[in-house]
Amino acid sequence: MILSTCVLVPTVCFWFDAPHLVTLATRIAILSIAAISLNLLIGTCGLVSFGHGMYLAIGAYSVSILQTTGVDNGFAHFSAATVVAGIAAALIGPLALRTSGIAFIMVTLAFAQMFFYLMISLRVFGGDDGMSLAGHSLLGPLDLGNRLGLFEVSVLLLAAITALSQLFNRSTAGYALRAARQNVRRAESLGLDIHRLRRIVYVVSAVLTADAGSLFANLNSYVSPSYSAWPMSGDLILIVVLGGMGSVFGPIVGAIFLLSVESFAPGLSEHWMLPYGIAIVWIVMTARHGLLGALLALRPAGKERRQ
């Protein structure tokens, strides 16, 4: 996995001589990181957070606010994003996790909207105009203002998070959470402390999404309260659901599809929204395991285990 990335990165960069393609690929990688993190909640725990845009925003503002105070050290940016998102999630998680289903969706949405209005009201941080970055994050010699550098960092982080979440899914904790998603009664009577596990996963998911947010700020050179608004959180959910929440790679497929269409379709026709909407509905309704599931089903059958 890591190896193939290392091989892939230079090749891809070579092919992507067109700068807007590098930007698109970077956006796909960054939102894939956020979506994979979100899928730890949706896919593994069965908890749909409609507020993950807030953590993206926290990560993004960590960069822009520190930049205004003259701190351009990227490690400081990511640390701030991690700490602030971690604290926010540690406070919000236990509250939100008292609920599940629709109530969980609503509580997470409410917190993200609160943060959205908070940032709008804070004129020092640009209010509803947002903030342009004074500069980019410096990771040692690497300037994330450099398009290829940012792309490589994003892809490496994506690879690392994919690998870790693969490990997590096969771990005892991953199984425990999936067990609870299907049958809480059973999971608890085995002595699995599901609530504690969910609180931990909520914080980890928030922190990783915030780190994606810091990369996102560097990509856009701009941060706005809209990152915390519901359409952003909704896009992340859409990426997960479209790609397939059953697997670690699903969100990557979802991000590739969604962002490519949004990037290319407007050039093809001004009426791209209609077929696009229909396509999304069709995918969600027909492919139970998302696009990735549909792609895998195209492979010659024979893997099914019968007895």
């Binding site: 870790l164 490990l167 997590f168 096969r170 771990s171 005892t172 904790a173 991953g174 199984y175 425990a176 999936r178 067990a179 299907q182 049958n183 059973r186 999971a187 085995l190 002595g191 699995l192 402390d193 596990l197 931990i200």
Partner: peptide, 28 residues
């Protein structure tokens, strides 16, 4: 737990008591 195999179910039950940090990455 319908989506698990019988072996996964029983192993999960056996390991449920000892969910240390390694429980997050060591394969079930």
């Amino acid at each position: 737990i319908d989506a698990f195999t019988t072996l996964e179910s029983v192993v999960l039950s056996r390991r449920s008591g000892s969910l240390s940090p390694t429980g997050f990455f060591a394969p079930l």
